[in-house]
Computed example of a mutant assay.
Amino acid sequence: MDHYPWQLENYFFTHQEVRANPDHDPDGNRRGSCISPLLNKTEIEGRPNAVGLEVSITLDESQSNNPPYFFTVTAFGVLVTDLEITDQLRDQAVVLGVDLLIGAIRERVATLTSRAPWGAFVLGPIPPGRLNVPPAHSDG
């Protein structure tokens, strides 16, 4: 194989919502933001060599302690390959796509909050187990 089999064809944000927390104490706990990530993958009709992924990251208001912002940002991306897609190749696309979309969401949240009252909010690392990535063979 001369090149990596997947290319990110396009991505866009399907939902962007950020609210400043008026009760945030800038001198208080700065590590109390609890996020809830969610992943959905979809087949793209008429495109057998493409995988669609939707990643959503929400700040869990009920589980967070002194978060500066409440937010939900959702990104949808399309990855394409010129190979015949196998379960293993689809799993590879999901792992790659999740990394790419989380990075895009991280930048979007920082941009959206950069001029807000508590300054830019940068999402920390999301441990691999936090975002349940279903295997390709689990699709119906």
Rank of each mutant, 00 (worst) to 15 (best):
M1H: 15
D2H: 10
Y4L: 05
P5I: 06
L8R: 02
E9Y: 05
N10I: 04
N10Y: 08
F13I: 08
T14H: 10
Q16L: 11
Q16E: 15
E17P: 03
E17F: 15
A20D: 13
N21Y: 15
D23G: 05
H24C: 04
D25Q: 13
D27F: 12
G28N: 04
N29M: 04
R30V: 10
G32D: 05
G32R: 01
C34Y: 13
I35C: 10
S36H: 14
N40M: 10
N40Q: 15
K41P: 06
K41Q: 13
T42I: 09
E43W: 06
I44G: 09
E45N: 11
E45F: 01
E45H: 11
R47Q: 14
P48I: 00
G52Y: 00
S56L: 07
T58K: 13
T58I: 08
L59T: 01
D60V: 01
D60C: 03
D60W: 02
Q63L: 05
N66W: 14
P68M: 11
F70C: 07
F71E: 08
V73G: 02
V73C: 00
A75E: 01
A75K: 01
F76R: 10
F76M: 07
G77F: 11
L79G: 04
D82P: 01
I85N: 09
T86K: 12
Q88D: 04
Q88P: 04
L89D: 07
Q92C: 11
V95T: 00
V98Q: 12
D99Q: 12
L100C: 08
G103R: 03
A104M: 05
A104C: 09
R106D: 11
R106E: 12
R106V: 01
E107M: 05
E107F: 03
S114H: 09
S114Q: 15
A116R: 13
P117I: 02
W118G: 00
G119Q: 03
I126K: 01
P127T: 09
P127G: 02
P127W: 03
P128E: 10
G129A: 04
R130L: 14
N132P: 07
N132M: 11
V133R: 03
P134D: 02
A136T: 10
H137K: 09
H137Y: 15
S138M: 01
D139L: 04
